[in-house]
Design a protein around this nucleic acid. Sequence first.
DNA 1: GTGAAAGCGCTAACAG
DNA 2: CTGTTAGCGCTTTCAC
Lengths: 344, 344
Amino acid sequence: MERRVTLKKVSLKAIAQQLNVSVSTVSRALNGKPGVSKRLREQIIKVANDLGYTPDPLAVGLKRGTTKLIGILVPELKGDFFATIVESVERALYHLGYRLLLCPTEDDPKKEEDHLKILVNQRVDGILSAPANFRSNKSLYEAIINEHKIPVVFFDRLVEGVETDYVISDNEEGMRILLEYLISKGHRKIGFIHPLRGIYTSEIRLKTFLEYKDKIVFQEEWIKDGKSSEEDAKEAFTTIMRSKEKPTAIIVGSYHMTLGCLRAAKEMMLKIPEDISIVSFDDAPWNEIFEPPITCVSQDPREIGLIASTILLSRLKNKKMGESRIQTVLKVKFLERLSVAFIK
Amino acid sequence: MERRVTLKKVSLKAIAQQLNVSVSTVSRALNGKPGVSKRLREQIIKVANDLGYTPDPLAVGLKRGTTKLIGILVPELKGDFFATIVESVERALYHLGYRLLLCPTEDDPKKEEDHLKILVNQRVDGILSAPANFRSNKSLYEAIINEHKIPVVFFDRLVEGVETDYVISDNEEGMRILLEYLISKGHRKIGFIHPLRGIYTSEIRLKTFLEYKDKIVFQEEWIKDGKSSEEDAKEAFTTIMRSKEKPTAIIVGSYHMTLGCLRAAKEMMLKIPEDISIVSFDDAPWNEIFEPPITCVSQDPREIGLIASTILLSRLKNKKMGESRIQTVLKVKFLERLSVAFIK
DNA sequence: GTGAAAGCGCTAACAG
DNA sequence: CTGTTAGCGCTTTCAC
């Protein structure tokens, strides 16, 4: 009794003809609109099922202006964090009939802009975005929200000044935890390899780091832009560790870059934590398996994805939730492992 | 001289009115169709640019039956391999104006089926798929290809018997390399934790492993279904290493599962490779950083994505390439590192 | 070379 | 309750 597997193009018209009724009646019946006799409605539904009817989303979209498409902008997919968020979002939206238009930005505001314009053009119902830059594309986002009335929810990052929903982690707190921990372990000479400048999380973490200027031994050469990439972080790490005066600990601003730093340490035959202590932003499955396991502050990407989806969904349902913004800041979790030495 | 950032709904009609010509002329002009005077065409193009016109993809799709949408089915995003493929595909298709509809299947044929039906319904122009199962959904795929005429390109995996393009890796060869290597290192007691049964790569690797039955010490309890998951692999590994008679080496059928095995080894205080040798399918950035670095056969996800996209693109261009199928089998690369001991 | 008209599949007034 | 009509934005005959 297998369901027909080959759903040939069957339109409202086909159903209408088969029952000798008009297309509009069929439309009403199938959409649960009032104004169709119970008996006829049931017949129509039956025929529709038998024929394997599914509405043409293009036609519906054209007419109704709603596409059941959600655009999701992420800098990248590699490296578990954003991948997990996207998976989580997909699971939350899937059963409600929404589909994901995937837009990797590579942290390039220009590519982000292109994607955004296309999403508007495609008439997506909503947009989830981890923006490439905390300043760029501000007016574009505002136009999308205010003029095109497409709900936008930021996650992990945001664009400063854009009034909309978001779910991010407490990056200040994350940096403070890491710093306080290192200090408590006796470290004063502390370096920071931060993510690509311009990214919201990079700016916040850097800003918070700089607030500790006086509590630590501050040295310009120990602060480097790892550009969110494994290679650049590797180079940054190497440079720092080659300088005359070395730090005793380095804070690494993201999981990709942690890989780069570990690679560099390995090549330089540096023992962690004996020769250099390392702590990192973001956890990953392999962090725990490394020798030594890496101490870090972590965010839960699954939760971020779920919350972002939930917020978007409520906007979608409730077009007129008005000005009340849902802005969530998640606590980070501190995972103490073995990558930090105690300094006397 | 910034480009207008807020492209309000501007249609062909708007342009037509502004120049006092008909909509059809504008359409022709903008689509480079013959039958418009050079002068008029230029004017139209200018006005279109000034107004920031972009064709409505829904309307175009409805009319022309082409949507510039590509569906991509992957089991998951976590873990770099498929994430990198998707990124690579996106980069290849992006500049040609194609967008990705992301469909994570979680290796569930039912979810795969749902996604496929929706993709057909959405009238995607093409489908890239790493199918969840080497048998399921065969007739659905065939219907999509033959009846709906939507080109399908399999990557990494395929569905047996479905006549279409694909790009996969040489899994038999991969398994042979691993096995021969272990044997050359003196191993005879070899276990295998394979990916979820039913997945193409799992079946092939298992089949090839079994062909070595007579050249190794074969033991049922050393072969386990790691279900492509970290947890299941961890449990499988633990069980195997608790059995009375232990293998000296274990082949792990995918990168996720490698993490699980390493975790298990750590918990059981097993030293690699002294207590147990490990080799793995698929490489990952962290494989090299582990202590010891993991010996493996690897495929290049970037290349897989690129080839798959290229094939699809040529199908899209050349609807009538006819029966000639492009079926690519990529060589795997063997990366010898330090996770295998030499057994006298 | 250009315009008018039909229609893709659907929804939503407006009439009966 | 049901059918007719119009139209979403675009492409594509078919006339002129």
